[in-house]
């Protein structure tokens, strides 16, 4: 038998190596993307009109899609979370709803794409931002509900009791005590869902359309940054003078923009988390 102390050393070295390998593979992806894409990032490419080869339409499309999606899931998700954490009786229906939400979270995004085509696109009659936003709303709803529910459950019971003891009704307590206290957690959910809209491609392939024009109405077609990346990477160059290599560089440039957005979102989630645990909750717990 190997001496335990030696086994300890070996295992420790091994675990270190594996972890560094994983972290460096991730850093590699980022560095590789940046090295191959930074050249494309100029004012004309990022903020130029899409007709002339810029990213204005995808940027506006992404923002439009985020806003519209949040418009649907914020009330619906928070409402569901409040119902589940504050109001729902302990019965089969509640259990089933919770189970359904967990199942929804596990469904692959391409399935939402199919659903969006079969329902929203058919219902509206054509592909457009609205159809894409509704599809993304279905996809991100479980994340919204889960974050909000966790935040609501985390509000100390004693605060609720204090409010009831002063004669407040359930809704008054929920509205004036519970929701304000849970707001940071709810905001985290909002950012998380916006992140999904930015990152997902599969559900939007056949729902959001692919217009190169800046979107105005929710019934217009649009593209998102991730979709733009997909087409840049997979389509053959159509206009003269642009090589496939140029398109790849541009795709990598879009990937850099996506990274920046994701990093900013992660940072704001962390920042909210920190503020949240420092200020309010020290008193409560």
């Amino acid at each position: 038998m190997i001496k335990p102390q030696i086994a300890q050393k070996i295992s420790s070295v091994l675990l270190w190596t594996i972890t560094l390998l994983v972290v460096s593979s991730m850093l590699f992806i980022i560095v590789y993307t940046v090295l191959h894409g930074w050249r494309s990032l100029n004012m004309h490419f990022v903020f130029g009109s899409t007709i002339t080869g810029g990213l204005m339409a995808p940027i506006l499309g992404t923002l439009y899609l985020i806003l519209l999606t949040l418009l649907f899931i914020f009330p619906l998700g928070v409402g569901t979370a409040i119902y589940l954490s504050e109001y729902a009786p302990e019965n089969k229906f509640t259990k089933f709803t919770k189970f359904a939400l967990k199942s929804l979270a596990g469904i692959p995004s391409i399935i939402y794409g199919l659903f969006g085509v079969a329902f929203f696109v058919v219902f509206i009659g054509h592909t457009c931002i609205l159809a894409g936003a509704l599809t993304m709303a279905c996809l991100s709803l479980p994340y919204m509900v889960t974050s909000a529910e966790e935040a609501l459950i985390g509000v100390p019971k004693t605060w609720r009791e204090a409010s009831y003891a002063l004669g407040a009704t359930k809704w008054e307590t929920t509205w004036k005590i519970v929701i304000p206290a849970a707001l940071p957690g709810i905001m985290t959910g909002v950012i998380l869902c916006a992140g999904r809209v930015v990152a997902e491609t599969a559900p939007l392939l056949a729902t959001v359309g692919f217009s190169p024009f800046n979107p105005v109405s929710p019934l217009d077609g649009a593209r998102t940054l991730a979709l733009e990346l997909f087409y840049l990477a997979t389509e053959a160059p159509s206009t003269g003078g642009i090589t496939r290599q140029d398109l790849i560089t541009q795709a990598m440039g879009v990937a850099i923009i996506l990274f920046i957005i994701i990093i900013l979102m992660n940072m704001s989630v962390r920042w909210i988390g920190k503020k949240y645990s420092n200020e309010q909750y020290k008193i409560g717990r």
Binding site: V22, V23, M26, I29, Y32, T33, G195, V198, A199, E200, T201, A202, A226, L229, F230, A233, A251, M252, A255, L258, F259, I262, I263, M265, N266
Partner: peptide, 15 residues
């Protein structure tokens, strides 16, 4: 690791 989870799948595909 958090960042790794957040990288859009399309970027993995691209690289």
């Amino acid at each position: 690791i958090e960042l790794m989870a957040g990288i859009p799948s399309i970027v993995f595909g691209l690289v």
